[in-house]
Design a binder for these strands. Structure first.
Lengths: 206, 206
DNA sequence: ATCCCTATTGATTGCGCGATCAATAGCCCG
DNA sequence: CGGGCTATTGATCGCGCAATCAATAGGGAT
């Protein structure tokens, strides 16, 4: 009652299974990520999932890694807006870019929040999420520092750290709204209000 | 093999079960809210849970209602800070009050996010959460309107609606941080940065 | 061509769940 | 005191899950 064999010598079997796991997760959320469902999606037997990942829990952790690995983060493409002369405008442009991407990345964002909730009780996952959020905030730091330095009087009492944190929180808050109510989320209104608050010229580029 | 009977004629049996459900949820998250666990916590049989709530799903929806019903919202105690003369200061005071409460309400906040994630796939729950978030934002509207009216030049281009949305998003973002990493959340720094952003005199930038 | 090692299978075990239901215990009304 | 209604029980059914494991297929080494 078994007919094993070496079909694909590729060690990328793991990758195939992870991709299948993502498909399942994007469709049925984390609770839908069962060994059977993933195996079926990947076209392999359920046993193989346990062969490569010790447990479903192990699969979930590796899926989170995969998710974070294959998702771009704020600062990464910051050079795209290096053209913007004004530091505040540059920061606005980065924020705008990320916010505009949210609707397209919705499946990933939803999944990320799923993990975030799971993380409140799962130390290993919580740590990875914390680090990812820290990375995201840190990506704003150089931009924030430039903003503060560019107009010390205007931003008196604000540290680069604090400004970066607020920027990250703002994007995260938008992510929350996009997931909950995509139709009513208005990128323009959010950006308008934000830039009016910061008193920077609204970044029109990108 | 059954020994029913009228022990507590109180129709508050529902309330008892709901409270038990909250205890279980606060301890084991929503996935831990099983009919058996709740019944055990409430000291009744599992069958009784289905007698009062048709299904576990029904129990979850009513627990959400209970949660929202027994949790205070922003504007509700706004009169407490009515003494503040400056509209912006008043709004800041409300925000600060809510943010300071987050750590104490942590179990509730965590549970709320649990529901929020669940809501992405559960229309009935999503609707209730949407409405709750709308109520929260609307609680900021009068305050936001006063702020804008108080200094039209400073807040040119900002609507009360937009400002209220940003305020709500900010608090929600803080809630996110509190749940994920309570030890590192710094109320003071968040408030300092925020008030510096909102109150700073119109800048010369650009 | 034989052996070994790795990849692979699917039946199987045991568990916990949601939901159902017949049995019944007490209260109220007559 | 006896019947009917409501509240309450826990055994029970069927399901889907995680995880295990003996069986085995096939390529590489010798």
């Amino acid at each position: 009652m078994a007919m094993g064999g070496r079909k694909a010598p590729e060690e990328q079997r793991r990758e195939e299974i992870l991709r299948a796991a993502f498909v399942v997760a994007a469709r049925d959320r984390l609770t839908g990520v069962t060994a059977r469902a993933v195996a079926s999606e990947a076209g392999v037997s359920s046993g193989l999932v346990f062969f490569y990942f010790h447990s479903v829990d192990g699969l979930l952790v590796e899926l989170l890694d995969w998710l974070l690995r294959t998702t771009l983060v704020a600062g990464e493409l910051a050079f795209l807006v290096a053209a913007e002369a004004d530091p505040a405008a540059r920061m606005m442009a980065v924020i705008r870019r990320d916010i505009e991407r949210l609707p397209r990345q919705r499946a990933r964002v939803e999944l990320f929040f799923d993990y975030w909730v799971l993380g409140t009780r799962h130390p290993e996952i919580r740590n990875r999420i914390r680090k990812a959020l820290d990375r995201y905030r840190d990506a704003f730091r150089p931009l924030a520092a430039a903003v503060v330095q560019g107009d010390p009087a205007r931003y008196a009492g604000i540290t680069a750290e604090g400004l970066a944190t607020v920027a990250a929180s703002f994007v995260e808050g938008c992510a929350l709204q996009v997931v909950m109510d995509p139709d009513r989320f208005d990128v323009e209104r959010s950006m308008t209000t934000l830039s009016a608050l910061v008193r920077a010229p609204a970044a029109s580029l990108v």
